[in-house]
């Protein structure tokens, strides 16, 4: 295969875009996809002070690299979850990445909040990934607000987003369908959240990391069950193989034509949020989820 732009030997073939690129033109393709996402949905401006959630996986590293490369004001935040067998490696990879590419990095140690994930897993009966996700969302949001960031950027890619959309649709989860997308505007107690990689697949971020020389983590979290999303991703990859480009069309179609209806529906029946009396985080209950977990953890 030849590069579509310059006719050199191609190194990445992209059936979803019916094209192939050499290394140099691939980087240009990737950059343009991110620029398009930012422009189409007004995700970021050059004035924004951006906090990037960096897990040490390929997507968040690719995101931090691309935004820095586009000249945005970027600071990374890594949350050390204190999970034996994966957190150490993730932290090391993140630290050396930020050093190599000159990106400012903050590290938040979750054990200092009394919420080391292995301890939480022992005491809280819900599935650990759902609790862990809730804890991460809370502290990324809080850190951004407390430190004057105007926006939080996460590395969700097209595969993550399509799998989630598929799952929300299977359950006709109108609340989540009403606000799933690359932009969540700031609201009382919530910083603006953006997903600039939403047009790029996992395959595409992996290729970017390879070509740029970004080393990323493979060690899966020992608690990962590879549950429903992994299965949906596999299903959707089969669909994409038979109908190249379908994932992006499905997702863009939802954003452009599907979502409005769910938004209207939720305005009528959505839940009212009030600030948590302990920490100020918006919640529909008396105490927010994290403060409730903390209460359980403090009991001996």
């Amino acid at each position: 295969m030849k590069c579509r732009r310059c006719k050199k030997q191609a190194v990445v073939a992209l059936p979803g875009h019916n094209t192939a690129f050499c290394a140099e033109c691939y980087l240009l393709f990737f950059k343009r996809q991110v620029e398009k996402a930012i422009k189409d949905h007004k995700l970021l401006t050059q004035k924004d002070k951006i906090l990037v959630a960096i897990s040490g996986g390929k997507d968040s590293l690719a995101l931090a690299w691309q935004l820095a490369n586009l000249g945005y004001d970027v600071t990374g935040l890594h949350i050390d979850l204190a999970i034996p067998g994966s957190s150490e490696q993730a932290r090391e990879l993140t630290t050396s990445f930020c050093k190599n590419f000159n990106i400012e990095l903050k590290i938040l140690e979750i054990k200092n909040e009394g919420l080391a994930i292995p301890e939480v897993k022992k005491r809280i009966r819900r599935p650990i990934c759902s609790v862990c996700g809730q804890i991460k969302r809370y502290f990324f949001n809080k850190f951004a607000l407390d430190h004057g960031f105007t926006v939080l950027a996460t590395g969700h890619n097209l595969d993550d987003e399509v799998a989630r959309l598929f799952s929300n649709t299977l359950r006709w989860d109108t609340a989540h369908l009403s606000d799933q997308g690359p932009l969540l505007p700031a609201e009382n107690g919530f910083v603006r959240k953006v997903k600039p990689l939403y047009r790029l697949t996992e395959f595409e971020t992996a290729n970017l990391c390879y070509l740029v020389g970004i080393e990323y983590g493979f060690a899966p979290c020992p608690y990962s069950t590879g549950a429903s999303f992994t299965y949906y991703k596999r299903l959707l990859e089969e669909l994409e193989f038979k109908q190249p480009g379908r994932k992006l069309q499905f997702y863009e179609g939802f954003l452009n034509r599907g979502q409005k209806g769910f938004k209207l529906l939720e305005q009528k029946q959505g839940q009212e949020l009030t600030p948590c009396p302990e920490c100020g985080y918006p919640t529909s209950e008396e105490l927010c989820g994290i403060c409730r977990i903390k209460k359980v953890m403090e009991k001996i």
Binding site: A10, V11, A13, E237
Partner: peptide, 18 residues
């Protein structure tokens, strides 16, 4: 594996399916 499920590398070079 489908072609978009893995990188294929030879001598530090990415290879397309063909």
């Amino acid at each position: 594996l489908r072609p978009t499920q893995a990188l294929v590398i030879r001598n530090g070079q990415l290879l397309t399916p063909d």
